[in-house]
């Protein structure tokens, strides 16, 4: 096994460079939004973060289902990597969302369905990672986490719908973030999401690789008498 494998590195480089190029699109190509002003640019970071988080959680779901059938510890490590990345990205998405809310609606926090969903899912996956730190046997832990990984994702649509019903009862501030965008803005957002996708894939792969190496070192350490 090579010491540093190319795929995560290439993905990370690709992601970083293209995200850097995106900055030009964000600040010079896309027009500044009339009402929000400069703060609207947060949107180009916020959306990819949120999507990245959702993809991570979906990956945890897929990995968990696969683990339940194949019982391959590599799949389990993929789930950990994805969950950790997802937690980080959803945390950042929440933070950027708060900045947005402060400027847009004058409050740090609104119970917008999307934000609420992200917030609750952040808790769910934080709990998922806490399960990881428990003193259980490796196989049992992987199994328990795989089951939680599946039900956590099943919960996502329910949380979203419930947050939506919950808010529609009150006069809600419905942020139509992706609603009526200018074509130039749309293009910029699309490019940002794709570039960020590379960075996301790189992060997950990198973390997975780290965990693989650690598992391998544990194996080697066990073999030494």
């Amino acid at each position: 096994m090579p010491k540093s494998s190319p795929p995560p590195l290439i993905l990370l480089l690709l992601g970083s460079v293209s995200l850097a190029c995106c900055q030009w699109l964000i600040y010079f190509y896309a027009p500044t939004e009339a009402a929000m002003g400069l703060i609207h640019k947060i949107f180009y970071i916020h959306l990819p973060l949120a999507w990245g988080a959702l993809f991570s959680f979906f990956l945890v779901f897929l990995g968990s289902v696969a683990y339940l059938f194949k019982r391959d510890s590599g799949l389990d490590r993929l789930c950990v990597a994805a969950a950790e990345t997802g937690l980080l990205l959803s945390g950042l998405a929440l933070f950027t969302g708060m900045l947005w809310a402060r400027k847009s609606w004058g409050v740090w926090w609104t119970w917008d369905p999307r934000l609420t969903t992200t917030f609750i899912m952040w808790f769910v996956y934080a709990g998922y990672l806490v399960l990881r730190s428990l003193n259980l046997s490796m196989r049992r832990k992987s199994l328990v986490c795989a089951v939680v990984g599946v039900i956590a994702f099943l919960d996502v649509p329910l949380v979203f719908i419930s947050a939506r019903i919950w808010r529609s009862i009150h006069p809600a501030v419905f942020g139509t973030e992706g609603g009526e965008l200018e074509p130039k803005m749309k293009l910029t957002v699309a490019v940002c999401v794709i570039s960020f996708g590379f960075l996301w894939a790189g992060l997950v792969r990198l973390r997975e690789r780290q965990l693989d190496l650690r598992a391998r070192m544990d194996t080697i350490a066990c073999d030494i008498p």
Binding site: V124, G127, V130, L131, V148, D155, S162, A163, W166
Partner: peptide, 29 residues
């Protein structure tokens, strides 16, 4: 989930509550 584990309550709560949010919202509503 917590079979054979001593600190069961705390463990259950951490996973249980966030997952239960939609239902609690419905019940509260």
């Amino acid at each position: 989930l917590a079979q054979g584990q001593t600190a069961r309550e705390a463990l259950l709560g951490i996973v249980f509550f966030p997952l239960l949010t939609p239902l609690l919202l419905a019940g509260t509503g």
